[in-house]
Design a protein around this nucleic acid. Structure first.
Length: 523
RNA sequence: CCCGGGGUGGAGCAGUGGUAGCUCGCCAGGCUCAUAACCUGGAGGUCGCAGGUUCAAAUCCUGCCCCCGGAACCA
């Protein structure tokens, strides 16, 4: 057997100074679908997530709570992972940038860049707040009118020694790189943005801070710590052993996709490849900048998710009221991954009831019940039977190919739309047209075949939905005695019908002759 | 001022030259297996505005109006 193709994907690491909200969850869900899809299709997948911990804000927040920064970070990481697990995010590794492996790798990396002559000592000048003990960005200073927004104290111009990364030297190399790998920046619309930025000229960036306890020390000048952006991006390679485990690093790098929010595209598309060039490491294959989730108020106003507005919707709130599967479905179906989307509780219940409860869930219920009531859950003499409907009314093969193409392009909303319009709707229509509940009284044999075909469509739907709704898809699939094990189904299996050795049977657990609704309606 | 995205029936969206489509909602009918779910039909749009190109434009060109983002450390 040939070695399976490998697939290394990452998401942006999050600041642990507040709990994850639906926006951060959106990114993880989108990435998770890709990971699950690739695993299904036979790739050896490595899916990395993590938290970005080496910031002053984190150290300050910890101090406020009277905790050590490491204790604080570990506890936040635990909370993040709890949410991700609840959302069925199938990450393989979770890195905290306060970990040893990251510190060691970072120091190796920055030393290499320094040795290669791309780091030099200079002076950083900026607006400084004594209270925060931190520099403010130019924009922050301007917005607050030269006064610290937190301390209301005037900002002072302050300069301090620091090290710069010679980003400007890489302008031409970056432009050549974009030309050689036109797919590097996804979606396409972000490409011009980055091109324009790089073409307009890049400034060298300050990559160190001084006078801080918390953070990673610069190996060639231990007074300094590595500034957060230079350190954060490196998580993608330190997690897979850069500087600590050459063999592991060899196995996974370069990354196939970095999933990130559209706001940090520039760091990933310009700074990051330049850093790698400087260290003599290969650049990643693709950066995917997904859109944002906005909140829609009851008055119909669109709002940015923000702590200060106090409008954060916690993922757990939705999971508790509905389910993790419903959460996943809503964002994957309603918010185009490459573009922006909106969340409102009203919209959420509408979509939930229409697509999950009334359509998918109800189809499942009626099929199972019909077979149970009329055939005792056993369709005799259906072993090795070719289904009829999938070759006539519904072209599953085309649908599967379209769905796959959409998933690979991270167009999850289109993929789901195809499944609903081309598999589930036709199934409900077929049921209505054939009316097996009536047919069973006059021609039991014919009714049996109709049900057999309906189940065949449910089987196809379950396979197609596996990356999106892992638990519900499994429940549907395991409600029948399909020959292929659920663990190893591929998309191709959805249209290449396996000859059943045994008659089709219902295996779902029943209570008073009924199945438990997959998605109970919410009124 | 600049850059990007967008303005399509009540709401949310698809649609880059050839009879304007989908989901939700609404109205009427059917069915009754199913989670009062399902199916069929209907009403409802001068596709932001004004010009232009073309046999033909939501779709291409020009100008204008409006909305939403962005401009370096914020997913």
């Amino acid at each position: 057997m040939a070695e399976p193709p490998r697939f290394y994907q990452t998401t942006a690491i999050d600041y642990p100074n507040s709990r994850p909200h639906i926006g951060t969850a959106f990114e993880k869900i989108g990435a998770d679908v890709q990971a699950r899809y690739r695993r299904m299709e036979g790739y050896a997948v490595h899916f990395l997530m993590g938290n970005d911990e080496n910031t002053i804000k984190v150290a300050k927040r910890a101090a406020e709570l009277g905790q050590g920064p490491k204790t604080y970070c570990d506890d936040m990481a635990r909370q993040f992972k709890e949410v991700w697990r609840a959302l069925e995010i199938s990450y393989d590794d979770f890195i905290q940038t306060s970990e040893q492996r990251h510190h060691v790798g970072c120091r190796v990396f920055i030393q290499r860049v320094f040795d290669n002559g791309h780091i030099y000592k200079g002076t950083y000048e900026g607006w400084y707040c004594e209270g925060c003990e931190a520099f403010k960005t130019e924009t922050e200073a301007k917005e607050s009118g030269g006064v610290c927004a937190i301390h209301k104290a005037p900002l002072v111009k302050r300069s301090e020694p620091c090290y710069f990364f010679a980003l400007s030297k890489f302008q031409d190399q970056l432009l050549r790189f974009y030309e050689e790998y036109p797919d590097f920046i996804q979606p396409e619309s972000r490409r011009n943005e980055v091109l324009a930025l790089v073409q307009s000229g890049l400034q060298d960036v300050n990559i160190t801070r001084s006078g801080q306890e918390w953070g990673i020390r610069v190996p060639f000048d231990e007074e300094f710590t590595i500034y957060v952006w230079f350190d954060a991006l490196l998580n993608y390679i330190t997690a897979i052993g850069y500087g600590t485990n050459a063999e592991l690093f060899q196995r996974w790098w370069p990354a196939d996709i970095h999933f990130i929010g559209k706001d940090i595209t520039r760091f990933h598309c310009a700074l990051w490849p330049a850093m790698l060039f400087a260290a003599g490491v290969e650049a990643p294959r693709m950066v995917f900048g997904h859109g944002f989730v906005y909140l829609k108020s009851a008055q119909g106003e669109q709002q940015k998710i923000s702590k200060t507005l106090g409008n954060i919707v916690e993922p757990m709130e939705i999971i508790t009221k509905f389910s993790a599967e419903a959460f996943r479905y809503y964002f994957l179906r309603e918010c185009p991954f490459p573009g922006d989307g909106e969340f409102s509780w009203q919209r959420f219940s509408d979509v939930y009831n229409a697509d999950l409860a009334n359509n998918l869930g109800n189809l499942y219920s009626r099929c199972v019940t019909l077979i149970t009531k009329n055939f005792d859950g056993h369709l005799h003499e259906t072993a090795s039977r070719e289904p009829g409907v999938i070759y006539t009314d519904v072209d599953i093969e085309t649908t599967v190919q379209q769905v796959q193409a959409h998933v690979e392009a991270c167009q999850y909303n289109f993929a789901l739309e195809k499944i609903w319009r081309q598999v589930l709707d036709p199934a409900n229509q077929y049921a209505d047209k054939q009316a097996p509940w009536t047919l069973v009284k006059t021609d039991k044999e014919a009714a049996k075949h109709v049900l057999y075909d309906l189940v065949e469509l449910l089987r196809a739907a379950a396979i197609l939905l596996k990356p999106f709704l892992p638990l519900s898809a499994e429940t549907i699939y395991r409600s029948f005695n399909f020959p292929q094990p659920w663990e190893s189904v591929r998309h191709e299996d959805a249209w290449v019908h396996p000859r059943q050795a045994a008659d089709l049977r219902v295996l779902a657990a029943l209570h008073d002759g009924k199945v438990k609704p997959l998605f109970p309606r919410i009124s």
